[in-house]
């Protein structure tokens, strides 16, 4: 990592550490949501940005994470910590199965299969209302102890830091090189001995488990989980954040998630139409600045120096 980059990451981290003492309760809520989306977008970026596969099941895996843990907590009184862990394991197993099923075929088949899977998850959660309470929403306990936004913020922040550091080391390792090799030219990668299917599957399972972690934490912070979490609407937000921030970069999803979360606070007055604004911004980026904010800024700096 370049020195300048390291310094900016550290500054961001320190700012994040003291932030809860500077902002109101209301903004703290936005920040926690923002951190949830940072987790979601960063892990989705792992498959979409680094191995070039568009999965639509990311929100569904978050849903699996929060509903597993939520149901375990409500029905059996299992503490959220173990519940979230169970959710992650379940999501990992499911993504392994799903990935084994469709990753061999790659490309569009993966997108369609994950789309189907995502809808199946949502429909089951919506219909098994006796267990999940469907669209009525399931009330779940707080992460631990008494409800406190500051606690939730620091737990979320810790998860984000751990996940980002983890992703950084994965990308720096041989596996990370293989990710990119698979994205750039699958056939060439295979010909030099990169196990294409294995590499893709690894990325897919990693992303799925991280989504479950994000979903589980967020659900126990919100205290109420609904099928909105595993919906295509959430999926769109994750996709838009990654695209706007910059696919295939470490900082992209972080910048994109925080950018959209803050933007959403400012355009709340337009109520129902803020999704429209998001989508238009996302389209402008996808169409004219496919490298996103981070890539675009990077280019500007490069041009100047």
């Amino acid at each position: 990592m370049k020195r300048a980059n390291l310094v900016s990451w550290c500054i961001a981290f320190v700012v994040a550490l003291i932030l809860p003492f500077l902002v109101s309760d209301y903004w703290l809520h936005s920040l926690i949501s923002g951190l949830f989306y940072v987790l979601m977008a960063s892990s989705w970026n792992l498959i979409a940005g680094y191995t070039g596969q568009v999965s639509f099941a990311h929100a569904a895996f978050a849903g699996i994470g929060c509903y597993t843990s939520g149901i375990l907590a409500v029905k059996f009184g299992i503490p959220p910590f173990f519940g979230i862990l169970t959710g992650i394991i379940l999501a990992a197993l499911l993504s392994l199965t799903l990935g084994a099923l469709c990753i061999r075929m790659g490309g569009i088949y993966l997108s369609l299969t994950t789309l189907g899977f995502s809808e199946i998850v949502r429909i089951i959660i919506q219909n098994e209302y006796k267990i999940t309470r469907g669209t009525m929403g399931l009330k779940v306990p707080f992460l631990f102890g008494n409800y406190s936004k500051i606690t939730a913020f620091y737990i979320m922040l810790a998860a984000v830091v751990l996940v980002l550091v983890g992703i950084y080391f994965v990308l720096k390792s041989d596996l990370g090189l293989q990710f990119r090799a698979v994205q750039n030219d699958e056939i060439a990668a295979a010909s030099v001995g990169v196990p294409v299917v294995f590499v893709r599957l690894t990325a897919f399972v990693m992303a799925g488990s991280l989504a479950a972690l994000a979903g589980g934490l967020y659900g126990h912070y919100l205290l109420l989980i609904t099928p909105h979490i595993p919906s295509l609407d959430t999926m769109f937000l994750v996709l838009a954040m990654t695209v706007i921030g910059g696919m295939g970069t470490m900082a992209g999803p972080v910048v994109g998630a925080l950018f959209l979360e803050i933007l959403s606070e400012y355009i709340r007055v337009y109520g129902e139409f803020h999704v429209l604004v998001f989508a238009i911004v996302a389209m402008i980026f996808a169409r004219f600045f496919p490298q996103g904010i981070v890539g675009f800024m990077g280019n500007l700096i490069k041009q100047k120096t």
Partner: peptide
């Protein structure tokens, strides 16, 4: 404040009204 008929959005809508 809009709830969209969704319990999760409703909870955050009322929280926003009160705290913000």
């Amino acid at each position: 404040e809009d709830t969209a008929g969704d319990p999760a959005k409703a909870a955050s809508a009322i929280e926003k009204l009160i705290t913000h």
